[in-house]
């Protein structure tokens, strides 16, 4: 495995690593973000582009926790929903602007991340299921009619007063840029290497003096933050929604499948996953809708059985580095 993490060393990242980081930024990260930013000028369905950008951000956010620590939160949508409702409550109940809404969205998801950080003590499928239960629990709370005065319960939210599709699209692109930077940093800084070393061999990493608990908690909160911001931007962009929308489990599933398909712990893997699979998803939906779910299910199965480490592994297996 050429891309295996080196053991963490004291001090800052070595200069070749840092140079690699700049290269990834200049040749992979920056062009992608620019492309996402100018895409609406090239193609008319802005909402489809917005969903692409949302899933790009979510996939990279999930990559931060799954790619670098091995924790797979099936309930990742919980942070997304917390962000969406953080935004909605700020705008609806406190009559503040979208800027404040985004700040609250960020804060809500990070606080939720902190509350749920004990889940990181669980391993494997237990963590995945517990995080799913947590997202469901949050949905049950938000959608309860008893909270009508705060969240509008099951009756749905309308934020037409701050509706601004162009601005919120650009904000989503900004969130994607942030997630991209984060992944580039994790791939090329000592912290990210240490996380991956810990994922592959927690005992040695602990012996090398890496603070395991703090490290993975930081990754967890960053991952939560990205989903929360994406949720805030989503609420802003679509402006009328129900709890079922903001906590739709398919946000989790899509983010997971896209990330796995491309290849976790790389920068371009999740991007390819989103572009190809979400592109395909929409293409199937438009051309042969009656077999939509069937084809998608078969595709997911084939992916896991024949390409478990993602597209990127086709290249890394041959010794080619994927940014």
């Amino acid at each position: 495995m050429p891309d295996r993490a080196e053991p963490p060393r004291a001090g800052i990242a070595s200069s070749p690593m840092r140079a690699r980081g700049w290269r990834d930024l200049a040749f992979a990260g920056a062009p992608l973000v620019v492309l996402a930013a100018i895409a609406p000028a090239l193609y008319g369905n802005q909402l489809l582009l917005f969903n692409f950008v949302t899933f790009l951000a979510l996939a990279q956010g999930l990559n931060v926790i799954y790619g670098f620590t091995g924790y797979l939160p099936f309930g990742y949508v919980g942070f997304f929903g917390a962000g969406a409702y953080g935004f909605a409550i700020t705008v609806m109940d406190f009559h503040l602007g979208p800027g404040a809404g985004m700040a609250v969205a960020a804060a809500a998801s990070v606080v939720l991340g902190m509350i749920l950080s004990p889940l990181l003590r669980l391993s494997g499928a237990y963590f995945a299921i517990a995080s799913l239960a947590a997202a469901q629990a949050l949905y049950d709370i938000v959608s309860n009619p008893a909270l009508d005065d705060v969240t509008k319960g099951p009756y749905g939210v309308s934020l037409s007063s701050v509706f601004a599709p162009d601005l919120s699209y650009n904000v989503a692109v900004g969130i994607f840029a942030f997630a991209t930077l984060l992944v580039i940093w994790l791939r090329n800084a000592r912290f990210g290497l240490a996380l991956r070393a810990m994922r592959d061999d927690p005992v040695s990493a602990a012996m090398a003096g890496f603070p395991i608990v703090r490290g993975r908690t930081i990754a967890w909160l960053l991952s939560a933050l990205i989903a929360g911001l994406a949720g805030g931007a989503y609420a802003w962009h679509i402006s009328v929604f129900y709890p079922e929308t903001a906590f739709d489990i398919s946000f989790s599933i899509f983010a997971v499948v896209f990330t796995l398909f491309g290849g976790a712990a790389t920068l371009l893997g999740p991007v390819c996953g989103v572009v190809l699979l979400y592109g395909l998803y929409n293409a199937i939906g438009i051309t042969v809708p009656q077999y939509f779910q069937l084809i998608y299910g078969l595709l997911i199965m084939a992916l896991v059985l024949f390409l478990p480490d993602g597209l990127a592994s086709l290249l890394t297996r041959r010794g080619i580095r994927v940014p």
Binding site: L35, L268, G279
Partner: peptide, 13 residues
């Protein structure tokens, strides 16, 4: 890869 990804994005669209 940057170029490829850009192409792929365009292709997806």
């Amino acid at each position: 890869f940057g170029g490829l990804a850009a192409l792929a994005l365009a292709a997806g669209i």
